[in-house]
Amino acid sequence: MSITVNLYYSGINGNARKFAEEMENSGTAAAIRNEDGNEKYEYFFPMNDPETVLLIDSWRDQNAIDAHHASPMMTTIAHLRNKYDLHMKVERYVSDTVEVPSSDVKFIRE
């Protein structure tokens, strides 16, 4: 089982992108990727909304998320969210399988 959290950071004047850039350039994102249980931590930029950044954040299980939330990284993230005056929308998904269903395989090009 994995838990994936999609976080949509929104702001004004390019602040969401500046936030993501600072997370990457400061090494904070890399440190989070190295935390035990982190499976994915990647930023994406929606083409139809230049003031939003999507973070796809996947973890092995709830214990890994809880450990991340208790880490010093959360203080850094909160500081940067406040610095760039960002608002968030969150979606949470729990995987039930790691294999692609056979009915979907014909639609996937690797």
Rank of each mutant, 00 (worst) to 15 (best):
K18G: 00
H79D: 15
I32L: 05
G27H: 09
D61P: 01
K106N: 03
L7A: 14
Y8N: 08
Y84M: 10
E35R: 04
R92N: 12
M1E: 02
D96L: 04
L55H: 13
M1P: 03
D104N: 02
E21L: 04
R81G: 08
K83Y: 12
V90I: 15
T52N: 04
G14V: 07
E42M: 09
H68L: 14
A29T: 03
D96F: 06
M88K: 14
D85Y: 06
E110P: 01
P72K: 12
M88C: 10
V94R: 07
I32R: 00
V53C: 06
D96P: 00
H68W: 13
D96A: 02
A67R: 14
E42F: 06
A16H: 02
I32W: 00
L80R: 13
V5E: 06
Y43T: 07
L7Q: 03
M23R: 05
I3C: 03
Y84L: 12
N48M: 04
E22P: 06
D96M: 01
T4C: 11
W59C: 05
H69C: 15
E42C: 09
I12M: 05
R81L: 14
P72R: 08
M74S: 13
Y9M: 11
E91R: 12
H69Q: 15
L7C: 11
T97V: 00
P50S: 10
D36W: 01
K89V: 11
E21Q: 11
S2Q: 05
P101H: 05
L80W: 13
T76A: 14
T76G: 04
K106P: 06
E24Q: 09
A20K: 01
Y9K: 05
S102A: 11
D49K: 09
A20G: 02
R92Q: 15
Y43F: 15
A20N: 04
T4F: 03
D49R: 11
D104E: 05
N82V: 06
D57P: 08
I32E: 00
I56T: 15
F44E: 06
T76L: 13
S71P: 10
E99H: 03
T28Q: 09
R60C: 00
F45Q: 08
A16V: 01
E110Q: 12
Y41T: 11
W59F: 15
R109V: 09
E35D: 13
A78R: 15
F45Y: 15
S26N: 11
L54K: 08
E39C: 03
A20Y: 04
T76Q: 15
T52L: 03
L86P: 12
T76K: 15
Y93W: 12
Y43C: 06
D85H: 13
L7K: 07
P72W: 10
S2R: 07
K106G: 02
D36K: 08
H79F: 14
H87E: 14
G14A: 03
S2E: 07
L55C: 13
L80M: 14
G11M: 10
W59V: 05
G11T: 03
N13A: 12
A20R: 01
N25K: 09
N25T: 07
A31Y: 00
R81C: 13
M1N: 00
S10Y: 01
Y43V: 09
N6V: 10
